[in-house]
Amino acid sequence: MMEAIVLDHITKTYGKEKIPAVNDVSLTVKSGELFGLIGPDGAGKTSIFRMLTTLLLPDKGSASVNGHDIVRDYRQIRNTVGYMPGKFSLYQDLSVEENLKFFATVFGTTVEKNYDLIREIYVQIEPFRKRRAGKLSGGMKQKLALCCALIHQPEVLFLDEPTTGVDPVSRKEFWEMLQRIKKKNITIMVSTPYMDEASQCDRIALIQHGNILSVETPSAVIRAYPQQLYAIRSEDIYKLMKSLRSNPLVDSCHSFGEYLHITLSEQGMRAEAALLAGLAAEGHGNVVLKEIIPGIEDCFIRLLKN
């Protein structure tokens, strides 16, 4: 099967006021793909996950997972998907081992039968197998939750913000694990608020206020950036930012680490030279300006502004 997940004009609203959380979203995830839903809190990521895992009914539109309709065939979907909700959702008062065994049995399988699939992850938490899940660190909880979601060898894996609140070291390890799981031919849909994680995905959907801004490969998203992007800095970055924002030559200006990322209203060497001359005249010292390739975050900011 080529298409693992299909959303067709899905809309989901909440409450009496019918506030849309997901607004007419259509997208397709191919079988074996690692697909990222990238967007901030409240963008509608969790609602999409809950509809695809048959926990919520859409108001409009239809969707399917591995060919099973999310409304009609919910039982088949529940048999074949793995789901890791955003909140740590294991039994805090059961041990690592007990949690794993419990979820294996719930899905009608045993830990032994599918141990190969989780071995690489499980060995990292195995030294703590007698410890209660509530006493694990954030990173280890995520690993355990992943093991529990994988234990029945799902065809599609849904991971809702697995790295939120996890420190950068554990985040990095987590993505390495996802890459290995992908090799076992499991389709993965993952959401994250961290833009820098987008490049780990085969394709990404940028989402904000329930609307899809773009669905592309990360490199295509970057290629679609229409202007030349520059990084600029000086000895006083705040002063630089203030003067750039009031400069008519500058189209946009955002802080980005130790640099400011700017685009110019005109392209080419002459515009660059004019900008630098102007800054020098204003008394900015040690100004460094360089052309750069935009990141996903730059693209997201541009899409948000439109």
């Binding site: 901030p40 939120t164 955002h254 900011i301 948000l304």
Partner: peptide, 8 residues
Amino acid sequence: GVDPLTRR
């Protein structure tokens, strides 16, 4: 959890 634009 805030979007990148608001973060800035």
